[in-house]
Design a protein around this nucleic acid. Structure first.
Length: 281
DNA sequence: CTTTTTCCCTGGACGC
DNA sequence: TGCGTCCAGGGAAAAA
């Protein structure tokens, strides 16, 4: 499930080979991909565009085009790129192909077809993103004060707040659990009951979790691959995610799995107590 | 306004 | 071997 570290890994691997290249041809074989626009319209519009660079905001990949337009790609659950492309004949999940002026192909793959491509006209990007996602957690502007403001007044469990892209951009189910473990906060704690020290710990913990993920080139549970085809290595470094019954790395207590905000949630019941007495002891 | 629920998809795991 | 059922989950949209 591509979250910020997985998207950033793909971005960093794609960018060197794409910057400055011209799109010679685009084939889109999944009707869903560009909805509501027809695939042929998007494919035709991309043809002849020169790619300035590849950027990322939250979980969005942004292909910045020299015309001022942007191709905004969201990988959702199982989307991904391969450059150079893997063999199409042996890949049932190829949904699109971008051919560049150096003769190479970029393959877009997506098992579950939740991913989306959106072509934005010049000037549209900022408003589009501002309406959907909040602060970039690894940037300097993501201060404790800014995070506290984004969390203020929320009545949801803190785990739900972390998953809300308007509160902080790029955190998904894996890194939310890892961050809450690091910050020693119970995932069901009501967001508005968090004190400033806890918000500060959580802010640092989110950055810690995401940086670890990037350093290990993301987590491969099943489908995720980098643009170079490599698996991530983060899955073998999880502190809690997917580790029900295994001992906590900090205290040895067995990790528990519960459901929060409709998502599988793993935490350490000793290190992340819910009630205040145990929290302060 | 905020919060919750439903839906979109495929395929792997599991029970019988 | 072959079904049927459940589950994974990001985010848009609808419902509450």
């Amino acid at each position: 499930m591509p979250e910020l570290p997985e998207v950033e890994t793909i971005r960093s691997q794609l960018a060197p080979g794409l910057a400055g290249r011209v799109v010679k041809h685009v084939t889109i074989t999944d009707e869903r991909l560009t909805r509501p626009e027809p695939p042929d319209a998007i494919a035709g519009a991309l043809k002849g565009e020169r790619i300035a660079d590849v950027r990322r905001r939250g979980k969005y990949l942004i292909f910045r085009l020299e015309s001022g337009r942007h191709l905004l790609v969201h990988l959702r659950m199982t989307g991904g790129f391969a450059h150079p492309a893997v063999d199409e004949d042996t890949d049932p999940h190829r949904r699109a192909t971008i051919t560049l002026d150096d003769g190479s192909d970029i393959a877009y793959r997506d098992v579950r077809r939740f991913g989306t491509w959106l072509l934005l006209e010049p000037g549209e990007l900022e408003d589009y993103l501002a309406a959907r996602i909040g602060g970039e957690p690894l940037e300097r502007s993501f201060t404790t004060a800014a995070f506290a403001k984004a969390l203020a007044g929320r009545r949801t469990p803190v785990k739900a707040a972390l998953l809300d892209q308007k509160a902080v951009a790029g955190v998904g189910n894996i890194y939310a659990d890892e961050a809450l473990w690091r910050a020693q906060i119970h995932p069901r704690r009501a967001t508005r009951t968090l004190g400033m020290p806890e918000v500060a710990r959580l802010r640092d913990a989110v950055r810690w979790a995401l940086r670890r993920g990037i350093a290990r080139q993301g987590a491969t549970l099943r489908d995720y691959r980098g643009a170079n085809g490599a698996r991530g290595r983060m899955q073998s470094a999880f502190r809690v995610y997917g580790r029900a019954g295994e001992p906590c790395d900090r205290c040895g207590t067995p990790i528990e799995k519960i459901r929060v905000a409709g998502r599988g949630t793993w935490f350490c019941p000793h290190c992340q107590p819910f009630d205040r007495e145990r929290r302060e002891s």
